[in-house]
Design a protein around this nucleic acid. Structure first.
Length: 489
RNA sequence: GUCCCCAUCGUCCAGAGGCCCAGGACGCUGGCCUUUCAAGCCGGUAACAGGGGUUCGAAUCCCCUUGGGGACACCA
């Protein structure tokens, strides 16, 4: 049987480095084995998924040099490759499990579940559904469903025995069945949860190896039990280590740039990022760390992936990137610069902002350098960010809060759950409301933002600057400024 | 709290019982080169978490402790 693996991102946000990381290892394994690498979109969360996010993920994965044999954009024999287009399938499979007594309808509402959770928390016991609806007679369940009552479908997990499975990197892993929750398989909107959709699709798409991040280990027993309930053979499981922040916690955007777009905008070469990611948990040889994708494919061996807890270290990435840049021919470097931000596309966005402040063409760089810099030097200007009546700590805090709210403005900032668009008008509106809500003068906050983003107190209009800088650089620079303020004493 | 995973320099990796008083890279650091700064070259710094076993022999195997992490949603 030939190898078939997949990357299954959920299109609910920016293209994540973790996705590229796991995709890379799936890709290397598939190619080395002469198998297929599939891209499947797991958009079963109707409220959070978007086509824009999907497009961004595909674009970013291509950017790091990956390609796939089957997927929503290229098609393939096991399509559709977007789970939202396969909902009927999951419904049928859920029904099958109900008929077999492996699953049941649950009519418990959100209030009861919240109450249950509260009690369990208070009792310091195990969290999870108590199985109330599991005891419902089939006829009653049918009748209430037919009457239009809202329900979810839960899996009836075995109450005794153990669930044992093998992880390729970690060996045998054992969970007591009694500790496995009666997982929701089908939500009340008729859409499947991850667990159902993932298992059904992996089986139908004939996936042979599930290579995914370590965070999934604890839900693997649910999946194994699902395969058993369906009477299917489970694929082989390979849980890759999780990428980490400096403090060893799971990599997160509060502590690390996490979007692939950031690395692109910050001037990282895709091949350097790809190479760096490959180094997380794997090596091609003891004394070698630079290699091409093709070389990785040629040498790849899943059994030589280590299970440590790799910290994503920007400093090392930068060094690698420098090596890649030095290796480029002059022509290639100029080409890369143009593709990046020195081409007419980006220049056309910068020029209108900078031109008013130019006396000679040469002033362009002096006035607009910060649009291109990877790192803003704030040493000389940190102190200027702090308004007269405020402290460094307060200023750091407001910058951090600003970053948070930009991505997740509460209803009081008029954003609902959608993040703020990065354009002059919405930024201005948001920022003024933000000042109001936090009792900061616009001129206080705006100067802090200006310096944090540009390193200068005299710049083009703030919000246009943010728009052109882009979301990722904006976030990174504001966070960097906040950190420098905190380091002040 | 419950369950699970992990454990070599500050960081990323090498090490699959003797080749290891542990090797490479980043970082930091001394020097060379050089009008400067990088780059490059030469050198230094720095680790097998602790304790028990197994074995002639353990960084490598087993157990315990400790530490770190993850999961416990009608999110994936």
């Amino acid at each position: 049987m030939s190898v078939r693996v997949r990357i299954a991102p959920s299109p609910t946000g920016d293209p994540h480095v973790g996705t590229a990381y796991i995709a890379l290892f799936n890709y290397a394994f598939a190619r080395h084995q002469g198998g297929k690498f599939i891209l499947r979109i797991e958009d079963t969360d109707q409220t959070r998924s978007s086509l824009e996010s999907e497009a961004a993920i595909l674009r970013a994965l291509k950017w790091v040099g990956l390609s796939w044999d089957e997927g929503p954009d290229v098609g393939g024999p096991f399509g559709p490759y977007r789970q939202s287009e396969r909902v009927a399938l999951y419904g049928e499979h859920a029904k099958l499990l109900i008929q077999r007594g492996k699953a049941y309808r649950c009519f418990c509402g959100a209030e009861r579940l919240a109450e249950l959770r509260k009690q369990q928390l208070a009792a310091k016991g195990a969290l999870g559904y108590d199985g109330l609806c599991r005891a419902l007679p089939a006829e009653e369940s049918e009748r209430r469903a037919a009457a239009g009552e809202s329900f979810v479908v839960r899996m009836a997990m075995p109450r005794e025995g153990d669930c044992i499975f093998r992880d390729r990197l970690r060996g045998e892993i054992k969970f007591a069945n009694s500790g496995i929750d009666d997982q929701v398989l089908l939500k009340s909107d008729g859409f499947p949860t991850y667990h159902l959709a993932n298992v059904v699709d992996d089986h139908l798409m004939q996936i042979t190896h599930v290579i995914r991040a370590e965070e999934w280990i604890s839900s693997t027993p649910k999946h194994v039990l699902l395969y058993e309930a369906f009477g299917w053979q489970a694929p082989e499981f390979v849980h890759m280590p999780l990428l980490r922040n400096k403090d060893k916690s799971k990599i997160s955007k509060r502590k690390n740039p996490v979007s692939l777009d950031y690395y692109r905008d910050a001037g990282i070469l895709p091949e350097a990022l790809r190479n760096f990611l490959a180094l997380m948990g794997w090596s091609i040889a003891a004394d070698r760390e630079r290699f091409t994708l093709e070389e990785m494919v040629g040498a790849f061996d899943l059994d030589r992936v280590s299970t440590g807890e790799p910290v994503f270290d920007l400093v090392k990435l930068m060094d690698l990137n420098g090596q890649y840049i030095r290796e480029l021919s002059n022509e290639a470097l100029v080409e890369r610069l143009q593709e990046w931000r020195m081409g007419s596309g980006f220049m056309n966005r910068v020029a209108p902002l900078v031109r008013e402040r130019m006396k000679t063409l040469g002033d362009f760089m002096a006035q607009g350098a910060f649009f291109f810099l990877s790192e803003i030097d704030l040493k000389a200007s940190v102190a200027q960010m702090i308004p007269k009546e405020r402290t460094a700590k307060e200023t750091a805090a407001i910058l951090k809060e600003y970053i948070e709210r930009l991505d997740d403005p509460g209803p009081e900032l008029g954003g609902g759950r959608r993040r703020i668009e990065l354009n002059d008008k919405s930024l201005e509106e948001f920022s003024r409301a933000f000042c109001e809500a936090n009792k900061w003068q616009p001129k206080e906050l705006f100067m802090a933002l200006r310096i944090a983003l540009t390193g200068k107190s005299a710049t083009p209009p703030l919000f246009s600057t943010m728009e052109v800088l882009g979301r990722e650089l904006t976030r990174k620079r504001l966070r960097g400024a906040a950190e420098q303020l905190e380091a002040l004493k």
